[in-house]
Every structure is written in structure tokens, then in C-alpha cells.
């Protein structure tokens, strides 16, 4: 019976369907805002849904000489991981005091799997451009993981716990200086985790013609897109749970509104960055993350250690 509830939570609410629908709506917001920035009209609300459906009926091509099963199942690893990550993050918001399935470390590790599945899929494509794209993605992981770890460990430094419940419970209403710096770092890293400009070097339409995704088509490509759409929900929510106090559901509609406000705020920042920044080269990205961003993250960690 417990497992039936678990499966329901995973598939319907708050897992797959719930998260995917929110993600698709948010991706519409992204496209609409982008269109406004570029003086276009933008797509209708249901366009992202149509797009996903369209992927499902398009033809699938598997490159010659590639392992067909591995090529097609690579997107599913990332999809599975993002679903479980979504479930854990949502549960920590809905039932803040109950321990559920995984803690901070678990979510951190699950959130690297979508990128990993993209890398493995690109390698399975047997295309040099895909390999280059995949290698850029893995280098990007190496680069942003260091500052990201430092940023999300700021609350761990304060609470000495890796449980999401403890981290949520310990956050004060007003952001501490260390928390603000960590949030800045997390926003920058989020941009890379969502493969948005300026850190979309793994796909780089202009020089790699899609890079990591070059050989993917049809439902397999749709699966990657769906995974990314769900990451649009999970990543900001995770940052909110760790650094911004999550969504307070006990406070009535005010709490919910404040939560939605935080979420939309994070999304809008990401969309604005992606529309105003140019793409960086991979070595610039690595240098940026291991240099400036890590510097800020270290400052945040030191402030947290000092109690600020």
C-alpha cells in the first residue's frame, strides 16, 4: 500500500505530471518573455504542450554503428533522476518536518544525472560534434559543481545537518549576508545546469549545430526536452528550499503567494540573463566558475562559518 502511494506521488502528484505541467507553463513564460525582448509576439500558452506531443510522433533516427538500446535509453536515466529529485524536493515543501526518501546530498547527486545522461547519449551518437558537445557538458559539470557545492553547503555549515527538514526549519525570515552571496552563486550555476545562454556551450547551435543533441530526434529528443522542462521546476525549487526558505504552506495564501513570487523571480532572472548575455567558450566558462564564482562562494562559506 505504501508503495502504491509512492507510485501515485511519483506519477501524478507531486512528481511527474504535476511538475511537467508547471514546467511546460514556465517554458511558455520563458518563450513569451524572450519574444517580448526580441520584439516578437511569442507562442500561445499551449505551444510547449504541442511541441512535446509533436516530438512523440516524429520519426526516430539511430546513427549507424551505435548501440541502439543504449542510444535510446540514455535520455531515460536523466528523466528518471529528475522525476525522483522533483518528488523529494516537493515532499520537503509539502511536509517540511517529515523525512522523505533523500536529503541534500541525495538531491545534489540526482541533479547531476540529467547532465550525465545527456553526455552518455551524446557519446552514444557516434558523431564527433556530439562528442565535443558531450565533453563540454562534462567539463561544465566539473566547473560549476565546486561553487554550487559551496553555495548549498552554506546552510549545512549553519545547521550541521544534511536533512532538508533541518535546513528548511533553520532559515530565518531575513536573508543573512552569507545566504545572499550563496544565492547569487546558485543563480549563476542554475543557468549552467539548465543549459541556458551564456553556458549552453554543449549544444551551441551556431558552431556545433546542436552538439550533444545533434543525432537525437523524435521521442528520444522529446525526452531530453521534457527532462529539461522539469529541471526548470526542480532547480529553482531546490535553490528555494536550501537558501530561500522554500514555500511556507502553513501561512495560508500569503505563504503560497510569497513562494510563487520567489519561484517566478528566480525564473525571470534566468530568462533575462539568457536573453542579454552572449555564449562563452568552454574554457572561459571553466575559468569563470573556478575563478570568480568560486571566490564568491568561498566568501559565502567563510561568512557562514563566522556566523553571518
Amino acid at each position: 500500500m505504501d508503495y502504491l502511494i509512492l507510485i501515485f506521488q511519483l506519477i501524478i502528484f507531486p512528481g511527474f505530471l504535476f511538475t511537467a505541467v508547471i514546467g511546460l507553463v514556465i517554458s511558455w513564460v520563458d518563450r513569451k518573455v524572450t519574444a517580448k525582448v526580441q520584439m516578437r509576439v511569442g507562442p500561445p500558452l499551449l505551444q510547449p504542450f504541442y511541441d512535446i506531443l509533436k516530438y512523440m510522433i516524429k520519426e526516430t533516427c539511430v546513427p549507424e554503428g551505435a548501440s541502439k538500446i543504449f542510444f535510446l535509453s540514455a535520455p531515460l536515466f536523466g528523466f528518471a533522476a529528475v522525476n525522483v529529485a522533483a518528488l523529494i524536493v516537493w515532499q520537503s515543501i509539502i511536509h517540511p518536518q517529515a523525512a522523505f526518501m533523500g536529503d541534500l546530498v541525495v538531491v545534489l547527486y540526482l541533479l547531476t544525472v540529467p547532465a550525465l545522461s545527456l553526455v552518455l547519449g551524446s557519446f552514444a551518437s557516434k558523431n564527433p560534434l556530439a562528442s565535443i558537445g558531450g565533453s563540454r557538458e562534462i567539463k561544465l559539470i566539473m566547473a560549476y559543481e565546486l561553487p554550487f557545492l559551496l553555495a548549498v553547503l552554506v546552510p549545512v555549515i549553519k545547521t550541521h545537518s544534511i536533512r532538508l527538514a533541518d535546513i528548511l526549519g533553520a532559515q530565518a525570515a531575513v536573508l543573512a549576508p552569507s545566504g545572499i552571496l550563496a544565492l547569487v552563486v546558485a543563480i549563476v550555476v542554475m543557468q549552467a545546469k539548465l543549459a541556458l545562454v551564456p553556458f549552453d556551450c554543449s549544444e551551441a547551435e551556431t558552431e556545433l549545430t546542436g552538439g550533444a543533441l545533434i543525432e537525437y530526434s523524435g521521442p528520444a529528443l522529446g525526452m531530453y526536452k521534457l527532462t529539461r522542462v522539469m529541471l526548470w521546476v526542480v532547480m529553482p525549487l531546490f535553490v528555494m528550499v536550501v537558501l530561500l526558505g522554500g514555500i511556507n504552506l502553513n501561512n495560508g495564501w500569503q505563504g503560497i503567494l510569497a513562494g510563487i513570487g520567489k519561484y517566478v523571480g528566480l525564473v525571470v532572472v534566468a530568462v533575462l540573463i539568457r536573453n542579454t548575455a552572449p555564449r562563452v567558450r568552454i574554457d572561459q566558462a571553466v575559468r569563470f566558475f573556478w575563478g570568480k564564482v568560486t571566490f564568491v562562494a568561498v566568501a559565502a562559506a567563510i561568512l557562514a562559518l563566522m556566523g553571518y
Binding site: 516530438y55 512523440m56 510522433i57 516524429k58 520519426e59 526516430t60 533516427c61 539511430v62 546513427p63 549507424e64 541502439k68 535510446l72 523524435g218 521521442p219 528520444a220 522529446g222
Partner: peptide
Amino acid sequence: SSVRKARTCP
């Protein structure tokens, strides 16, 4: 979806 009809191409 249409993945069953996957085609191998160079």
C-alpha cells in the same frame, strides 16, 4: 510514441 519505428541512418 513513434520510437518503435526507429530507423538507422548514417
